[in-house]
């Protein structure tokens, strides 16, 4: 019989400032979140701008111009509030445009590596 698992949620954070990923992951460790996956992502605006540049034609050639990073992490529900506060603190306010977007999704089943 499997042991009772704590309720989990999938936290999705889309950071518009890739440079802050490191700080976010360090914060995760401090809070007790022990794993996350970081995906290089690209906003709609960036894709649309890419094929219609006006003055800066070279900008789309560089990899970091994908602009954003998506951080995915399944974590215990009890940590969610603290993670939201962490993101808020790192970004300096989620109400600002071009800062970050974060949301949670319920996790129905979870299997795989346990840290």
């Amino acid at each position: 019989m499997s042991e009772a698992q704590p309720r989990r949620k999938l936290m999705v954070i889309i950071l518009d400032q890739p440079a802050l990923v490191d700080e976010l992951l360090t914060g995760f460790l401090d809070l007790g979140v022990r794993g996350a996956t970081v995906v290089e992502s690209r906003g709609m605006g960036s894709i649309i701008r890419q094929d219609m540049p006006i003055f800066a034609g070279l900008a789309s050639l560089f990899p970091e111009n994908t602009g954003s990073r998506m951080v995915l992490s399944v974590m215990a529900e009890s940590l969610i509030d603290r993670v939201f506060s962490l993101v808020e603190e790192i970004i300096g306010g989620l109400d600002k445009p071009n800062s970050a977007v974060c949301f949670t999704l319920p996790v129905e089943q979870f299997r795989g590596i346990r840290h």
């Binding site: 969610i80 509030d81 939201f84 506060s85 808020e88 306010g93 989620l94 109400d95």
Partner: peptide, 11 residues
């Protein structure tokens, strides 16, 4: 105040 409001809305 903002932090508190955010805290309440996420809780």
């Amino acid at each position: 105040q903002l932090e508190k409001t955010n805290g309440e809305s996420t809780a």
